[in-house]
Design a protein around this nucleic acid. Structure first.
Length: 272
DNA sequence: ATTCTCACCTGTTAGC
DNA sequence: TGCTAACAGGTGAGAA
């Protein structure tokens, strides 16, 4: 499940492998992508000028002035290669470039991924996204948590509050800062807010450096796996022992999502 | 207004 | 052994 570090890894790969290339043809565009973006074939003849990331969105700037927005959701991945790979049943978009026999494939087992041109509605979504997770400061986080009684985990997952965090990195950030996922956001102490902001920045930086986390399916554009999985302390570690205290990592549901934490290191408390 | 729940989708896994 | 049912999860629409 690509979160910010995985998307950042892909964007860097695209800037190194696809930037400057012109689309020659689209040998394959799946109906379900066309349903979301009927104009997708307009990519033909256009040139990718630059790729950037906002939260978990990939934004491709085209020579025509159009911008293409890609969200990988659960299982989307982008693969770039030279060879004539045979088409996988989960490939939904195939782009062949004019130069260098290069081709790009968008593969998405669960079909949640979205590719569409940026129009007013999409621009509005981008505008509303919260502060970029790798850059969040304690004072920014303070201003965000004090307004909400939601469980801190739910708040951190809200892309319009903080952009880029998903289930893996939220669980890891809360563990590193010793905060219980169900703790009400507005009840966090000043120390906890400082620790949480620092944990988010550190974990984002480390995960980006390690090319993301491959838990089951994430791949970079070259097909390489992320290396951050080896540093996971709680995510999908339920039943194992906490590296700090030896207690058993627990798993609960928060906002409908699997949530992993150490019952000893992350205690819920009444107020700040 | 804010927050929660569910649908979307399909490969994997648990359970009978 | 073989099958079915539950599960995973990011987001947005609709409900509470």
């Amino acid at each position: 499940m690509p979160e910010l570090p995985e998307v950042e890894t892909i964007v860097r790969g695209l800037n190194s492998m696809v930037k400057g290339l012109t689309v020659q043809r689209l040998p394959h565009v799946s109906p379900h992508l066309l349903k979301r973006e009927p104009q997708l074939r307009q990519l033909t003849g256009d040139t990718f000028k630059l790729f950037e990331r906002r939260g978990k969105y990939i934004i491709a700037h085209l020579k025509s002035g159009k911008r293409l927005m890609i969200h990988l959701r659960m299982s989307g991945c982008i693969l770039v290669g030279e060879d004539q790979r045979r088409r996988d049943k989960h490939d939904h978009l195939e782009i062949v470039f004019r130069a260098r026999r290069r081709r790009l494939v968008f593969r998405d087992v669960r079909k949640f991924g979205v590719i569409q041109f940026v129009r007013d509605g999409q621009q509005e979504t981008l505008n509303r996204l919260g502060v970029e997770a790798p850059a969040i400061t304690a004072s920014q986080l303070q201003a965000l948590v004090c307004q909400s009684k939601r469980p801190v985990k739910s708040l951190l997952l809200d892309q319009y509050v903080i952009a880029g965090l998903g289930n893996i990195y939220v669980d890891e950030s809360l563990y590193r800062s010793g905060i219980h996922p169900l703790q009400a956001a507005s009840s966090l102490s000043a120390n906890e807010i400082r620790a949480l902001a620092r944990a988010i920045r550190q974990i984002m930086a480390s995960a980006i450096k390690n090319l993301g986390t491959t838990f089951d399916s994430f791949l970079g554009v070259n097909g390489e796996t992320g290396r951050f999985a080896r540093y996971l302390k709680v995510y999908h570690q339920d039943g194992s022992r906490c590296g700090e205290c030896g207690d058993i990592i627990a798993r609960i549901k928060v906002g409908g999502r699997g949530t992993h934490f150490c019952p000893t290191c992350q205690k819920e408390h009444r107020r700040s």
